[in-house]
């Protein structure tokens, strides 16, 4: 019972961290666009919408890529693609649905989508770099161990 509660609590904390990160990114995006349009505030309702959307996306992310779970390389690649597709659908769809960036020219929208894609690519590139670094460290320690005896 207590283990189940602890597991749910940790999962909830994980969702909150991810939600916080994505909400910050969305609000930052909106603030930059508003500033470029000459408006130096972000509507509270818009921020709440972004929070709710980010919560749903973070929830989906913890289901698609649960932290600390063993997955094969192929499975992880599929899950990463699914997550990127979902990010596009959720954030572009919500922006259209709630009119977050109403009134901007089409070429702005194109640039914003490109930035979103770059951001997602950078996220996975950072993960790839982390595994590369860990792999290098593992092999260095292995060599050291093998030479020691």
């Amino acid at each position: 019972m207590i283990q189940e509660f602890n597991r749910t609590y940790l999962w909830g904390r994980d969702v909150k961290y991810r939600m916080g990160l994505y909400t910050t990114m969305a609000v930052f995006y909106k603030a930059v666009v508003n500033a470029l349009l000459g408006e130096f505030s972000v509507d509270s309702l818009t921020m709440l919408e972004m929070l709710a959307v980010s919560f749903l996306f973070a929830l989906a992310e913890t289901v698609i890529v649960p932290s600390g779970k063993n997955r094969g390389e192929v499975s992880m690649r599929r899950r990463a693609i699914l997550l990127i597709v979902l990010a596009n659908i959720v954030y572009i769809g919500s922006a259209l649905l709630f009119g977050w960036f109403r009134g901007i020219p089409v070429w702005w929208a194109a640039i914003m989508i490109a930035v979103l894609e770059l951001g997602l690519a950078a996220l996975w590139y950072a993960l790839w770099l982390e595994y590369q670094r860990d792999t290098k460290l593992l092999n260095q320690n292995l060599q050291h161990f093998q030479q020691e005896l």
């Binding site: 600390g68 779970k69 063993n70 997955r71 390389e73 992880m76 993960l127 595994y131 590369q132 860990d134 792999t135 593992l138 092999n139 292995l142 161990f145 093998q146 005896l149």
Partner: peptide, 27 residues
């Protein structure tokens, strides 16, 4: 001599490893 448990069903000789690769999920 370098024998090390790596899973419930496997023990590996660390001197028999050529290279290692890190994967998501601490694998």
């Amino acid at each position: 001599l370098g024998f090390c448990r790596i899973s419930r069903s496997m023990v590996v000789n660390l001197h028999g490893i050529r290279r290692l690769k890190s994967y998501p999920g601490n694998r």
